[in-house]
């Protein structure tokens, strides 16, 4: 072969910027000339690489432009080291979360105010009994699978249902504990009373997560919360004049042995839930 295609011609041919006649003669030459076929393959390879670089650059720019602004809670989670995708999953329904958070908080604030300004022990007792139920209700209202922001789509995704429930339960509990601890510190009672809600809160949350694998999150939370309130209401009692510690001491739930049993319940329920984690994916929604 006495002549060869120039690099400029091959590049123009690759991007379709040659006349039909020129394309035809280029193709005729390529069929006969191995050197020019090799050059064409090489130029095409470079072209693809260049295009990929260009697309990558474009993707980076679009990433910057298209990224929606994260909410405060989502940003907070990312700041404390939670990955961006997990932050989105857990902070997925901020409005719902705010609703239950505000409702639960207002009950406890009322309890603390009662404790501060009334002479009886009602406020402190109310606080200790209701504080453990708040995270349970939070989990059910916002993060039950049926309340998933993606609706039924969220049921048939490969992301493990158990992992999602556990993540969200941890987030609910973690966002709940600091304000509850601060409010507990404002209770007028001294000694152990302001601490007595903590172990039950852990136990009820783990129990809800474990039972969710059998009956679904909402029925599990309803059963746990109702059961707790009924038992507490039936066992906590005292005279108007006696302090909150005496009222609570009437119930096994708030004595040292009861608290140890509740702690054991929390650990057992967590083990059961982890062992049965596959069951959370298998449960039907209807």
């Amino acid at each position: 072969m006495s002549w060869h295609l120039t690099v400029a011609t091959i590049d123009a041919y690759l991007v379709g910027r040659v006349s039909d006649a020129c394309a035809a003669s280029t193709e005729t030459h390529l069929m006969r000339c191995a050197d020019c076929r090799a050059l064409l393959a090489d130029r095409e390879h470079q072209d693809v690489a260049a295009r990929r670089r260009h697309n990558d650059g474009l993707d980076r720019i679009l990433d910057r432009i298209d990224q929606p602004r994260r909410g405060v809670f989502e940003r907070l989670l990312v700041t404390v080291g939670v990955s961006a995708s997990l932050a989105r999953l857990t902070a997925g329904a901020p409005r719902l979360r705010h609703a239950w958070f505000a409702a639960g908080l207002s009950v406890l604030v009322v309890a603390v105010l009662l404790a501060q300004f009334s002479s009886g022990p009602v406020g402190a007792v109310l606080f200790v009994v209701t504080a453990p139920v708040a995270p349970v209700i939070g989990i059910a209202l916002t993060y039950g699978r049926r309340a998933d922001p993606a609706g039924e789509v969220g049921v048939v995704v490969p992301f493990p249902a158990f992992r999602l429930l556990l993540l969200r339960s941890v987030i609910v509990l973690a966002s709940w504990l600091p304000p509850a601890a601060l409010l507990a510190a404002a209770l007028p009672d001294h000694g152990a009373v302001p601490l007595l809600w903590f172990v039950p809160a852990l136990a009820l949350t783990s129990l809800t997560v474990a039972l969710s694998g059998y009956v679904g999150t909402v029925p599990a939370a309803a059963a746990v919360a109702t059961g707790w309130l009924v038992v507490a209401a039936a066992t906590v009692r005292g005279n108007r004049g006696s302090p909150a510690a005496v009222w609570l001491d009437h119930s096994q739930l708030f004595r040292p042995a009861g608290q140890v049993l509740l702690a054991l319940l929390a650990v057992t329920a967590t083990f059961v839930a982890v062992a049965r984690r596959a069951a959370y994916d298998a449960r039907e929604t209807a």
Binding site: P68, L96, G154, P158, F159
Partner: peptide, 18 residues
């Protein structure tokens, strides 16, 4: 779906679950 999401956020949310 949860209406507080934008279209992008909703699809991104499902993509994470996917």
């Amino acid at each position: 779906f949860y209406e507080g999401f934008t279209a992008y956020e909703f699809v991104d949310y499902v993509a994470i679950l996917q």
